[in-house]
């Protein structure tokens, strides 16, 4: 069964159609790249799949649950890392992990072993008791990702996780994504970096709320006769009629 199955999903804000009748499937354990220019509707689509926004029309299942009727069940099985930084800056690293772990129903024992494992993995053991606001951006992003994975979700949604992050940290971030996918987690990621698009198993490209291309990076390059993903993206993005907003 697919991790995510979307049929004719639409979201309208008044007369504006942010997401226009999109359909796609994401397989289990896949790294699915969700590309598109600013304002193409990526974040809106992702927020619908996470149960943060009601779809206007269409059907979808996430982790086998219906998006309309079982949104709260979906929430137990997914992790989400939003574009905005979403850890509490006035709490320490350890307290943030404890808070989100606790909300997902982890026991004190589980939280403790998770915390130790994550801190060690991220090389943040020394900083366990520092406030999050004093961490540099790259570390914050890696920490956010780990926190989004604290309850070992089936699917993790990442909304531009590497925006503004330096190339070295981006590499490390993608290593973490690969590790998660290896462990069986489905990764749904949006990005503006075309080199990152090459790392994905499959990629979809949104233009003006529609999905105009979908396939493996190799297939897409062939289909649009481009040498790299940047070429594919430029060809598609030029069709866009919507302004950059």
């Amino acid at each position: 069964m697919n991790a995510i199955a979307v049929q004719n999903l639409t979201k309208q804000f008044g007369s504006f159609t942010a997401v226009d009748n999109i359909s796609f499937d994401v397989k289990r354990g896949e790294i699915f790249g969700f590309l598109g220019a600013n304002g193409a509707g990526k974040t809106t689509a992702m927020r619908m799949l996470c149960g943060l926004s009601f779809p206007t029309r269409g059907e979808a299942t996430v982790a086998g649950f219906d998006l309309f009727r079982e949104a709260e069940k979906i929430k137990k099985s997914i992790g989400y890392m939003s574009q905005k930084f979403s850890l509490y800056e006035d709490l320490t690293i350890k307290e943030n992990i404890r808070f989100y772990g606790g909300i997902y129903g982890l026991t004190d024992g589980q939280i403790k072993s998770k915390t130790d494992f994550m801190l060690q993995h991220l090389g943040l053991s020394e900083q366990a008791n520092t406030l999050v606001k004093s961490l540099p951006l790259g570390w914050r992003q890696k920490l956010s990702f780990s926190v989004a994975m604290v309850h070992e979700p089936q699917i993790v949604f990442l909304d531009e996780p590497t925006g503004g992050v330096d190339p070295v940290t981006r590499r490390e971030f993608w290593t973490m994504i690969y590790e998660a996918a290896h462990a069986g987690t489905t990764v749904f990621v949006t990005t503006h970096y075309m080199d990152e698009a090459e790392y994905c198993d499959r990629v979809s490209i949104m233009v003006d709320g529609r999905i105009d291309a979908l396939g493996t990076p190799t297939e897409l390059k062939e289909q649009f006769s481009a040498s790299d993903m940047a070429g594919v993206f430029l060809k598609l993005a030029r069709r866009a009629k919507r302004g950059d907003d």
């Binding site: 943060l52 929430k75 989400y80 997902y104």
Partner: peptide, 13 residues
Amino acid sequence: EVGTIEQINVTPI
């Protein structure tokens, strides 16, 4: 304003 509410809303709380 900070954006942490999104992260809360995506949990089964």
